[in-house]
């Protein structure tokens, strides 16, 4: 019997699976799960890629415990260079960034994102963190991926409250699903084997093409072992507190 996903490992491992050999991949601030995904890929996959992080690290390998903050200077450890903020943004806008993990509070079917407000921008019900790099990076990188720990009609929406960024968002990973953009719209690529496609549709605010969707291939021993090495006491998994919707779990 093969291993199964937890909601947390479904997100981290499927983010890691988006990383491709010999590409330049970036993880940013407020991005704990992509930080873990990049480290997981370094440890579990038998190929080279360049990992840039917002702390300025190039292929860093933190010694000891992984920091809680994805911008922690500990993510410089083992780096042979400092590649700081202006450097990686300029790299991106001149076309040198292959994959970036960019956070989003809301995502619509076209892959546009809102990280600015819930409600009207000028009279916000909730003021969100702001887009950070996304407005500049999303249109200029090759592929962006985002993640949501809550897969619900208020995070995967038919209409954004505000369009913080639009561009080359290619993938969305949640505890339930992996979406891949096809013909300009997010389509279901795979689903957590613990949930059905109907359950994902019910939890998603937009309709999507699910033709060809398969159960997400189970985690490999190498992936699980790498994740255990990154989160030996389960701190990240507990802090992330990711659950499947109640109707499903």
């Amino acid at each position: 019997m093969s291993a199964s996903f937890t909601p947390f490992s479904h997100v981290v491992i499927n983010l890691a699976r988006l990383i491709r050999p010999d590409e330049v991949t970036f993880s940013g601030v407020n991005s704990t799960l992509p930080m873990l995904a990049c480290l997981l890929a370094k440890r579990a996959y038998d190929f080279d890629f360049t990992w840039l992080n917002v702390a300025g690290g190039v292929d860093a390998e933190p010694a000891g415990a992984i920091p809680l903050s994805s911008g922690d200077p500990a993510l410089m450890h083992g780096s042979a260079a400092v590649f700081a903020n202006e450097d990686f943004y300029d790299l991106c806008t001149r076309g040198g960034m292959d994959l970036c993990f960019l956070g989003a509070s809301q995502i619509d079917a076209t892959g546009a994102t809102n990280n600015s407000v819930i409600g009207d921008w000028h009279a916000p019900k909730v003021r969100l963190p702001g887009g950070g790099g996304s407005a500049v990076m999303m249109p200029t990188l090759r592929r962006a991926a985002t993640w949501r720990t809550e897969h619900s009609p208020r995070t995967l929406v038919n209409e954004l409250f505000f369009q913080t960024a639009k561009g080359n968002l290619q993938n969305v990973v949640t505890p339930m699903a992996v979406f891949d953009k096809r013909d300009g719209r997010l389509a279901l690529q795979s689903h957590n084997p613990a949930v059905t496609i109907a359950e994902i549709q019910k939890a998603t605010g937009f309709t999507f093409d699910a033709s060809g969707a398969v159960p997400t291939p189970p985690p490999t021993e190498a992936e699980l072992s790498a994740l255990r090495s990154l989160d030996p006491d389960g701190r990240f998994e507990r802090d992330a507190a990711i659950t499947l919707p109640e109707a499903v779990a």
Binding site: C92, T93, G131, A135, Q163, K166
Partner: peptide, 13 residues
């Protein structure tokens, strides 16, 4: 000049 921003409503705001 700055790269990107196309498609973001931040520009309009």
């Amino acid at each position: 000049p700055v790269g990107g921003v196309h498609g973001s409503q931040i520009a309009k705001i």
